[in-house]
């Protein structure tokens, strides 16, 4: 049939058009600079070896929760806490592995908040500044002179077991000020460490 052949031709042309498009190349993996998969706390006290505590995500973006180490400190001691953040999607040699630098550079829109079991520290006293208005001894600041929290100072109280220290990194783009609190902005990091204070 004449008509059929005409239509077949049109069909054939159209089908040809479809099949000529596209190619079969594997997609390229993305860099994922925003992830924080490893957190290292270093407590230093004069005359003593630094105490390192690690929280690590064993399966990166998988469903397993972070593996969080316990903090063991000595009683009635002055400590400086330095926090480092890492992105396990990168190799340790890659500059992107260390997220701490980035948070430092963008300090004007970040702040670390802390809370702990009440009375564990003699300084700062109280239970912290997450959800309450307690003080934290910030030892660093952003370009606007506001606290950042990657470096903080602590004095432990007496011996205690089964206590907690929580740290919360908030991203507060465009809103960080002297009055913003842990309730403002979005959470980049929120980890609670078990805390023990020995004699």
């Amino acid at each position: 049939m004449k008509l059929n052949s005409k239509f077949s031709l049109v069909l054939l042309l159209a089908v040809g058009l479809i099949f000529t498009s596209g190619c079969d190349k594997d997609p390229e993996p993305e860099n994922v600079p925003e992830e924080i998969t490893r957190v290292v706390l270093v407590f230093t006290a004069p005359g003593a070896a630094p105490i390192e505590v690690v929280a690590n995500d064993p399966d990166l973006g998988g469903p397993q929760s972070m593996e969080i180490g316990a903090i063991h400190l000595s009683a009635e001691t002055n400590y400086t806490l330095t926090i480092s953040l890492y992105n396990g999607y990168y190799s340790a040699a890659d500059p992107a592995y260390n997220v701490t630098t980035e948070v430092q550079e963008e300090g004007a829109e970040h702040q670390l908040f802390f809370s702990w079991s009440a009375g564990v520290f003699s300084s700062p006293a109280g239970s912290g500044n997450i959800g309450t208005s307690g003080t934290v001894n910030y030892a660093d600041e952003d370009e606007n002179g506001l606290p950042l929290g990657l470096v903080t100072n602590w004095t432990t109280g007496g011996a205690a077991t089964g206590k907690e220290l929580r740290l919360l990194l908030k991203h507060q783009p465009g809103i960080k000020s002297a009055t913003t609190t842990s309730a403002d902005g979005e959470s980049d990091l929120d980890i609670t460490f078990p805390l023990f204070i020995g004699e």
């Binding site: 479809i18 099949f19 498009s21 596209g22 997609p27 993305e30 994922v32 600079p33 925003e34 973006g61």
Partner: peptide, 23 residues
Amino acid sequence: NGMIQDNNKIDGTQTLPFIPNFR
């Protein structure tokens, strides 16, 4: 009816892709 679909991520999102590329 015939249909061919080709879905590709646009590189450079710097996140894990939410859905895969597919044909």
